[in-house]
Design a protein around this nucleic acid. Structure first.
Lengths: 217, 217
DNA sequence: ACCTGAACACCGTTCAAGT
DNA sequence: ACCTGAACACCGTTCAAGT
């Protein structure tokens, strides 16, 4: 209610993340943020230059939640761990992946991450070119998976209902493979989209390991 | 100026895509859209129920630009072709990938695509589970790469300048691997982020081919 | 049927004024 | 120094009125 705890950049960003988590990025308005902080809209401008800076800040705050890869010699375990952590964090903040696109100003947590991953690749013996391939591939996969997962029009427990509705709306015979695949696989017990993440990640890591072995010969 | 060509849903969506291409999704407002169409804001509501529908519509319009995979028996060539086409289209409309996230209503072009890709996998002999893995992996990769590419804070020809500025802003010694990697690889002539796409795609297709061969044994 | 003017409840942000 | 009231130039959308 009252601003007993004084306002600060950190408290603004923390609350901004909470608002976005609850209602998506559209719910994150300066005015709503001020109300949640028990303060008038204009007060925020003493701690943050404008809304762009808030968006930059919360993206970096989300990055800070991702585990830095462990420093050990096992590049594969380190990258796998980091990828799983990134996916979990981005799933907790479904708005974050899309907001990344518009951010041209990487923050310190983001840069620290890039640095740590490049360190892992270097210690793993990746030549520069292969390190570039590996980084691009892994990051694209993780972000893309997070984006796809965030776009799923249903919570995992509601697949059946949501997919059923979708199928009913199809013109008969228009999407035969989609219907067949949905009925024979997606709606079968045991299918869960989230489980695809690990499969794809392992395939990519296998591929990188093979390329690295070739490069070392 | 005057609405000689009568307004229509298609003309609204076409213009909406143009506005987003020019100024990002933030530049796509009902009012700007009406102005561009030489009409008053309220007129749009006779052809489109609201802004959400416009966003659904332009995402589907972008999907319609992606080449459907060819019908031939070569699954690998078909998927590669489709992936390259998708990446090119998403690069032409850098706002589109992020907008995907918020769209729970896939349009007909989107569904036709999913159907066609599943058809390719089926004719290629992919069991349902492997088809699911393949679809998730490829789509995540393509979207993630498009997102990363759209987030690059510079046009390809300005790498040197933009990256130079970024590096100068770093606290000394804070990001050693990032600095080393940038100087020894990113800033070297011949490096271009866009070229990473093909490498990653081939690695994924190699992996899928190996899994498919195993499944067939 | 299609277009529109006025109005409503919102935005982010500036500026001058308070403590 | 930090907070704020009033104001400005925007949003998307409803509703009643025009042709």
């Amino acid at each position: 209610m009252s601003a007993q705890v004084p306002l600060s950049r950190d408290r603004v960003l923390e609350t901004a993340v909470a608002l976005a988590d609850e209602g998506g990025v559209a719910a994150l308005t300066i005015r709503a943020l001020a109300a949640r902080l028990g303060v008038k809209p204009m007060s925020l401008y003493h701690h943050v230059p404008n809304k762009e800076a808030i968006l930059d800040g919360i993206v970096d705050a989300v990055f800070a939640e991702i585990e830095l890869p462990p420093e050990g010699p096992d590049w594969r375990a380190a990258l796998s761990r980091r990828a799983h952590s990134a996916r979990a964090v981005l799933a907790r903040h479904p708005w974050a992946t899309a907001v990344l696109e518009s951010r041209a100003h990487p923050g310190p947590a983001t840069l620290r991450h890039h640095d740590a991953v490049l360190g892992v690749l270097k210690r793993g013996g990746f030549p520069y070119a292969l390190a570039a391939h590996a980084y691009s591939l892994l990051d694209s996969y993780v972000y893309g998976f997070a984006l796809t997962e965030a776009a799923l029009p249903f919570a995992p427990q509601d697949v059946e209902e949501a997919v059923g509705e979708l199928l009913e709306g199809f013109p008969a015979g228009e999407y035969p493979h989609l219907v067949e695949f949905t009925e024979h696989h997606v709606l079968r017990p045991g299918y869960e989209y989230g489980a695809e993440f690990g499969y794809g990640l392992e395939l990519i890591l296998d591929g990188l390991a093979a390329r690295l072995a070739e490069a070392g010969r």
